[in-house]
């Protein structure tokens, strides 16, 4: 009897976990995958590189373009974000952010960043790249 109860509880919990994670999780996409086809009702976790020269903060609101190196402008998205900006956020850095399509709707590449979801990927943060002997050779920034 107790074993049956425990098993039922475990199965119930497992079912809950699986259901809630798959329904709450944000799939990770590249900017090019959502630029034109994003469903306005869905939140996407998008990972890409902040386009050089695209960052501005009119009225304190962060605007930037997100793309991938070498991708066409059409494969970039424009993001407006009002949450916490990590100290490591910069042009040219790889970031992750939860976004929803903006008010302009399908066809536009404008997206709105969700609350405090901006994360800067910086894999070399704790792992410095080796320098050349003269110490003057340029190093990759991330």
């Amino acid at each position: 009897m107790r074993f049956t109860l425990a098993l039922t509880f475990a199965l119930f919990l497992s079912g809950m976990l699986v259901y809630t994670t798959f329904s709450a999780a944000s799939p990770e996409r590249f900017p090019g995958q959502i630029a034109s086809v994003a469903d306005p009702a869905q939140t996407y976790r998008v990972g890409g590189r902040v386009v050089e020269g695209s960052v501005s903060r009119p009225g304190g609101v962060l605007h930037f373009k997100l793309g991938h190196p070498g991708t066409a402008a059409g494969e970039q998205i424009e993001v407006t974000y009002e949450g916490t900006v990590p100290d490591t956020f910069r042009e040219g850095r790889d970031v992750l952010i939860d976004v929803k399509r903006g008010a302009a709707g399908t066809g536009s590449t404008e997206f709105v960043g969700q609350d405090n979801s901006l994360v800067t990927k910086c894999p070399s943060k704790f792992n410095g790249a080796p320098m050349n002997a003269d110490g003057t050779t340029p190093l990759p920034k991330t």
């Binding site: 994670t21 798959f22 799939p27 990770e28 976790r45 979801s117």
Partner: peptide, 20 residues
Amino acid sequence: FFPLISEGLTGDAASVGPTW
């Protein structure tokens, strides 16, 4: 580990946040 589980099952690395 959900991002890895999700990627293994669906091909998409989805993740859950603090609310979950």
